[in-house]
């Protein structure tokens, strides 16, 4: 239960996920923001207007998954670090999970890392394929990790083991 221990249940998650069909078509955003709080930077970060205009500042972001192309610009805009991009078309066996990361040390590209679920528990290994630390991201690194395809909706953090 999200409000008991910070981990969303399957039902809570399902409310905001893109459809299986959309996931199979390539990169798309997953916004794990389930509570109405006064916060709107994600809306302004999306250049494709895929995040719908907020009725008021407390609105939960609603995504037009057809407009979203998984560009990842919104990831580092979110103060709650609740935005991820997933790409199930990355390769035959692997999918990409693209996530915000604000810890040191940063992994290296190509490095194998422990992949953690929403409880912070290791569920599989993954390989870092890209790390972005652009100035506009203001110290929130955006890291792409290749994970086994079936883990794409489980992996939400990494642990650098080196």
């Amino acid at each position: 239960m999200l409000d008991k221990d910070g981990v969303p249940t399957k039902e809570e998650l399902l409310k905001q996920l893109p459809s299986e069909e959309r996931l199979d078509r390539g990169p798309v955003v997953v916004i794990e923001c389930f509570q109405e709080i006064p916060c709107d930077p994600c809306y302004y970060s999306c250049r494709r207007r895929a995040i719908r205009e907020f009725a008021d500042i407390n609105s939960i972001p609603i995504v037009d998954f057809e407009r979203c192309n998984g560009c990842t610009l919104c990831i580092s805009s979110c103060p709650g670090l609740a935005i991820f991009v997933v790409d199930k078309t990355y390769s035959e066996e692997s999918a990409l999970v693209i996530m915000p990361y604000e810890l040191l040390p940063l992994p290296e590209e190509g490095e194998e890392v422990a992949c953690l679920d929403r409880r912070g528990e290791e569920v599989c290994k993954g390989r870092v394929v890209n790390i972005r630390t652009r100035k506009m991201q203001d110290k929130t690194a955006v890291i792409s990790v290749a994970v086994p395809k079936e883990m794409v909706m489980e992996v939400r953090n990494i642990r650098v083991t080196s």
Binding site: L2, D3, K4, D5, G6, V7, P8, E32, C33, F34, Q35, I37, C78, P79, G80, L81, A82, L103, L116, D117, R118, R119, G120, E121, R156, N157
Partner: peptide, 23 residues
């Protein structure tokens, strides 16, 4: 309290780091 009082995105963020939250 029986429930997390702060924003749930903050709770999920620390939870993903492996920090248990015990209400």
């Amino acid at each position: 309290a029986p429930r997390i009082g702060g924003y749930l995105v903050h709770a999920s963020k620390v939870r993903r780091l492996g920090v248990p939250i015990m209400t």
